[in-house]
Each structure stands twice: as C-alpha cells, then as structure tokens.
Amino acid sequence: MTKPVFRFAPSPNGRLHLGHAYSALLNADFARRFDGRFLLRIEDIDITRCRPEFEAAIYDDLAWLGLRWEEPVRRQSEHFADYRAAFLTLKKRGGVYPCFCTRKDIAEAIACRKAEGGEPWPRDPDGAPLYPGTCRGMPDDEAERRIAAGEPHAWRLDMATLQKLVPGPLHFRRFDREGREDIVPAHPRRWGDAVIVRKEIPTSYHLSVVVDDALQGVTHVVRGQDLEAATDLHVLLQALLGLPTPGYHHHGLLRDPEGDKLAKSRRSKSLAELRAEGVTPQALWRRLGFDP
C-alpha cells in the first residue's frame, strides 16, 4: 500500500502567523501518526500579491519550527498549463460559461431582482451574493465575439448543467486525529455559478488546488474550518475531472482576543515577530498543543 500524503499549502502574500504554524504542525503530526509523507506547496497563482521575499520567509519560518518536507516544492505559478488543461476538460463537457460582468454589473442586477421580488437575495457560504446568472445562456457567437475582441471575462461553473453531468448526490470522507472516519454529503449548489477561472488569473484557487492535490497524490487534506464549505466545490470538480477525492479534516481556527480569526490582512503577529521576541520553537509547539 502507498503511504498517506499530507500537504501544507500557504500563499506567499504575507508573513506566516500562529494560525499557519498550527496548520503546518497539524499536517506534520498527522503524517507522523499515519506514517505518511509531508509535502509543502506554494500557492502563488495570484502573481500580483505574492512576492519572493514572502516565499523565502515561509521556508525560514517552517525550518525554524523544525519541520522538514519533501523536495522539490511545487510552486503553482510554474504550472498554469496544468490548470489550463483541466479547464479545457470542463469546457469540453459544457459545464462552464464565460462571464463578462463587473462587480457593478452584478450589484445592479441583484438590486433590480430584489426590487422586483422583495425577498432577501441568497448568499454563498462566504457571505457573497450569489451570481444572478446574467451571462448564463448568452449565445455562443456573441460570447466568442466578445472574447475575440479581448473583453475581460471570467469563467463560471454552470450549476444547472453540472447537475445533469454529475447525477446523484456527492460525498466525501471526513477523518479525525484518531483515524476515525465518516461520510459527509457535499452541497456544491449552495455556491451558485462560482468562478472557476478568474479574469486576471488563468485559474482559481478551487481549480488549481484540486489539480495539484491529484497530481501530487495527496490522500488527506488538513486545513482550516474557513475552507470547509469550499470542499463542496472541490468534490464536484474532482467528479467532473475524474480525479480521486482525498479525505478531509477541517481544524478549528486560532482567534485573537476580540474573537476574530488570525489573518495576514489583520496584521496578526507573525512568526518572525514572535521569534524576535525570544519565543522558542519548543514553546510555540507546546502553546499550540503539540509535543516538541
């Protein structure tokens, strides 16, 4: 039997904080418990925000923690061709359509619908309003003309069509630190017609992570609860692309005294700052509930 494969996959758009340390240590702990492999992946598809100095800092921070990972490290920015091939497979199956809407277009369309119906507009699991379907059903010749003219566009999943392409309910395997497992239903329709290729980037988080996990043979995905709902979309993409579905474990999030999750955008204290204050890796391991 092949060994279980775990991965820690940060984005180099800022310095790692305690929340990242917990997720990395938890993945390494799972790999040790299950006699598995531990991979590091750099998720840098957003080339406008990701920076080389942050990537270098990831390696330094994880090495300071005492973690070791297999080489070579997969960098997403070097594999856009893989994501393009997956997108073309989805396109061939008829499960996507181009969307030319701006955020303003979408907001105005939703406002008109709400004025007509009066009901609260549905939202996706992240709290964003569901796409109103403005470009769904656009004639192919019009879409091709606008694409050929260089008009900016994203590509969205067509949930109505996908329901026919993937009949029957979708499920995934959930596991815990003791190795217990159960089967959980996936509900991708609650995301609406989600963006699968962004306007400014020739892929998306959802598409690239599914492709990477399959190509790297990842068998167990350990990540935060903030990505639990995204698993719905990932299971759907795996079914459409004929890829294996790993098991999933979504861990609790570390929070600040105000109850907000630690985040780069909130300038949560970084591991580098903790290190400068004299915090040792051993103390940090114990603080996060691991044996050094």
Rank of each mutant, 00 (worst) to 15 (best):
T2M: 12
K3R: 14
K3S: 13
P4T: 12
V5W: 04
V5M: 07
P10D: 07
S11I: 06
N13P: 02
L26D: 05
A28Y: 01
D29I: 03
A31K: 14
G36L: 06
R37M: 01
L39K: 00
L40H: 03
E43L: 10
E43I: 08
D46Y: 13
I47K: 08
R49S: 07
C50D: 15
R51H: 14
E53W: 07
E55G: 09
A56W: 00
A56D: 13
A57P: 02
A57K: 02
I58S: 00
Y59I: 02
W69C: 00
P72G: 13
P72N: 12
R75F: 12
Q76I: 05
F80A: 11
A85R: 13
A86H: 06
T89Y: 01
L90K: 11
K92F: 00
V96A: 10
C99A: 10
K104V: 10
I106T: 10
A107R: 15
I110M: 03
A111F: 09
R113E: 11
E116C: 04
E116L: 11
P120V: 10
W121T: 06
P122G: 02
D124M: 08
P125D: 06
P125G: 09
G127F: 06
L130Q: 08
Y131R: 01
Y131N: 02
P132D: 04
T134N: 01
T134M: 07
C135G: 05
M138K: 07
M138E: 11
D141G: 00
E144C: 04
R145K: 14
A148E: 12
P152V: 08
A154V: 10
M159E: 04
G168A: 04
L170R: 14
H171N: 14
R173H: 11
F175R: 13
D176Q: 13
E178I: 00
E178C: 03
E181P: 00
D182T: 12
A186M: 06
H187C: 08
H187R: 12
R189W: 04
R190L: 09
I196G: 03
P202Y: 07
Y205N: 11
V210F: 00
A214M: 07
V218C: 13
T219W: 10
Q225C: 02
L227A: 04
A229C: 07
A230M: 14
A230C: 15
T231I: 05
T231E: 03
L233V: 10
H234W: 00
A239C: 11
L241H: 06
L243A: 07
P244N: 11
Y248W: 14
H249L: 12
H250G: 04
H250D: 13
H250P: 08
L253T: 08
D256M: 07
D256Q: 09
D260R: 15
A263S: 15
S265R: 15
S265Q: 14
R267P: 00
R267Y: 08
S270Q: 07
A272Y: 07
E273R: 12
E273T: 14
A276D: 12
P281S: 12
P281V: 11
A283C: 05
W285L: 11
